[in-house]
Design a protein around this nucleic acid. Sequence first.
RNA 1: GCCCGGGUGGCGGAAUUGGUAGACGCAGCAGACUCAAAAUCUGCCAUUCGCAAGGAUGUGCUGGUUCGAUUCCAGUCCCGGGCACCA
Length: 956
Amino acid sequence: MEYQFKKTEQFWQQYWKENNSYAVSNISDKKPFYVLDMFPYPSGAGLHVGHPLGYIASDIYSRFKRLKGFNVLHPMGFDSFGLPAEQYALETGQHPAATTEKNIATFKQQLDKIGFCYDWNREVRTSDPYYYKWTQWIFLKLFNSWFNTESNKAERIQTLVEKFEKHGSTLLSRQPASFQSFSAEEWISFSDKMKQEILMEYRLAFSAYGEVNWCEALGTVLANDEVVNGLSERGGHPVVKKKMRQWYMRITAYADRLLKGLNTVDFSDSMKEMQRNWIGKSEGAELQFAIDGHEENIKVYTTRPDTIFGVDFIVLAPEHELVDKITSAEQRVSIDEYFTYVKSRSDRERMAEVKQVTGCFTGAFALNPFNNKKIPVWIAEYVLAGYGTGAIMAVPCGDQRDFLFAEHFQIPVTNIIGEHFNYSEANPTKEAILQNSGFLDGLIMKDAIVVALEKITEMGIGKRKVNFKMRDAGFSRQRYWGEPFPITWKDGIAVPLEENDLPLHLPHVDTYGPGPEGEGPLANLKEWVDLSAGDSEVRRETSTMPGYAGSSWYFLRYMDPENQETFCDRKASDYWGQVDVYVGGTEHAVGHLLYSRMWTKVLFDLGMIGFDEPFKKLVNQGMIQGSSRFIFRLEGEGISKEKVFVSYSLVEKWEKAQISKDELLKKINEVTGSSSISSTISFSRIHVDVNLVDGFELDKEAFKKWKPEYVNSFFILEDGKYTCAAEVEKMSKSKYNTVNPDVLVDKYGADTFRMYEMFLGPVEQSKPWDTKGIEGVHRFLRKLWRLFNDDIKGKLWNEEQPTDAEWKVLHTAIKKIENDTSNFSYNTAVSAFMVCVNELAEMKSNKRSVLEPLLIILTPYAPHIAEELWRQLGNTSSILDAAYPHVEEKYLTETSKEYPVSINGKLRTTITLPLTMEQADAEAMVLKNDVVQKWLEGKSPKKFIFVKGKMVNVVI
RNA sequence: GCCCGGGUGGCGGAAUUGGUAGACGCAGCAGACUCAAAAUCUGCCAUUCGCAAGGAUGUGCUGGUUCGAUUCCAGUCCCGGGCACCA
């Protein structure tokens, strides 16, 4: 019987489901192993072939580990809160809960067809109240915690209150800038509101005023994505920055630990690099410059205090608070103009244009603290208010951007590095010997950094400072479809809900428009919001949490999804521990991965879990790009435009002038039956649905049915074929290059689809999708089937004893595939399967003792056919519970033999050669080579190296 | 501008990490089986010179280290991804 994948796959999927074959228990003698995928956002578009790439990779690994005797946790769930569902609701009026539910159903159906071994009993959905109850609960833990810089960990806020009650703020090394220090007595005397305001400066989840993108016309806050060139994406209305009360995660408190933690995890170097760059730790100095004629100081941050004598000007961010105060009367107009210009510039523009130097002189001068030199103070858009102190000291001879600025505005440049500076570009060296640098003269710059720092500290004009690029993470959104905050505002004080009152359900709304004052839609529910009683005003928080709230801890919930007492029982998280392998795309490099790392550290600090890094190993799957196909519509006078499509093979010839106009027209007229004559011939290139194309050949009938306007199309063929042109582009619906996995699973089966996705190339690598090679994998599975069954003879396998050659083929494959699978090198593993089956087929080897282990190692890749054939061999228990076969090394070396080799009559060593070679060959090889002769004098070689049958080297 | 990847046949990609470059698959060509098709099987398939045996060239480009380089080093050019002009 031929291999009937549809029947087979449906049968076993049903069987596994009915037998709960993928259920995982938290109680087991086996070692635990946790394989996790980044859970998807259930979008309305459903899965495309890019999605399953990572899922298949992790599924293979899970099944592999299971065969290796581990208790494997491999769950799946849905990141089901998010903006798209809400936007869809705005457009269609359908409730996000309903559309999300529907989308999840579609996703699950699509996923199940591919045969993943998820334990669906553990599914989580972030929008489920049973789930977000615990997101809110963890939020309250964050709210009620502070980061103690002495112990370097999070502690309950109570410990801070106790410190204040005993010692005031004096014992704390970190104090918020906005508060003066206070004594214990003062603390006790503070009003409750004052106390709460102070505590808010320490809480890990805290509320503060922050800038948002505000669109007056839409009356709403917009995400960065929704702002294009300073205008709203919808409607093109102006967008301005507006201060609003927001919630934040104090992730900056964990900057150092997030950085150090990277050394303990197995992420790719580029991923670690991205996170390091994002955290952006730098060590330097903060120092003050006095301003001539003003009381205020300008604080600058620099990593190069050694260049202090090379400062030729100071640049403030245009938004810097001192700008207004120090601007001179004559510069006022220019500064205002420049400020207006900067405001009109989007972040994207400020980022993109590097070559254009802009700036404006304030008219003020700062004084160099060491030589009292007058330094002009400028503003420029390249200095950002949010980083460091929003002011820099510019050293043109050492910093290229400063140099270009000086050059552009003709500011004289001081050279402090002598011949290292050539006056045509800056030199950022740290190796030069300083000149023109007062007390630093003669020092090498890298040594001068410390000397300068000491002097600055001694003079009281600055201090050593560690700076981080990373800023606290905004944690509130003025949206509906997210977790409501378990917070009420009572007379301006944030009051957390009691834990027993969780979850705070997301109330139903009828409209999804913004609330008054641009608050989230929840603000429209007056009764829900207003809890005022008596004199005090009590209002619920109307923002909701961002998408990353639920995804910051979901990996813990899978361990204990049913628990109603806590987010995850400590026993469960102790048993499973860290996620051993986490698979997902690089787009989450700095968002999700940093937030979940932070939450894990907080939960660890509070003693709720036993590890402080969530993911032990991270595997990044590459992006699947689309491979678009194009058809060519004939354009020209006298030709019916919509209907004539010319094969790309002919278009190519036409473009290369390999075919004459008459010939082409003749072909066209033959097909269309008319006699059109045209003075000009040209073609327009049109995207055609890749699914209508087999390789490059267009399915003409399917094309005619694709769109009504193509019903009466004519095709100008070559060799009876219509060929299409191709190009690699991003996968998108508008380019008609998306491929739905369902179609492929229907046509070739899940096993073929799984193996083909892996065969396409390394998991980590981005690559264009191309269906044309899938036949090869399908052929492989059919060939495997034919080792067991035959159309005519039926059962083929037998109980005979395999030959050494057969054992060799099997064990070579086991070794290679085991190795490749554990290294996520699935593409070469699939190749190894093909080689193995080809060789067995050639030997007509149908021996059970060879075929059985082969099926086991195939299980992770093609579980359905493996299970089917396994049962055909008479096994009564599932192949899922088989043990991974061991490699018998002896079968791998049998075909080689050792030869003694002597040179000049003396026995020197033995070498191992294939059986096909003889003693004479071995000696001849050695003797022929003069390189060897030289190297051999008096030494005993360990290894000979042959290239093309010639010995080229000896390892001694 | 900065950071991280990557350049190998017509195509996707291999190469035990310094040791016969092009495994495996696709596409293509030729053949077998068949009335025919499908399916299956066999052979060829980097470029170039040659009837052939065989030779020369060849892993983006230019050099270097080495007996030997796709692999290591320096420079350079392209392509992809990321970015918050980060002082």
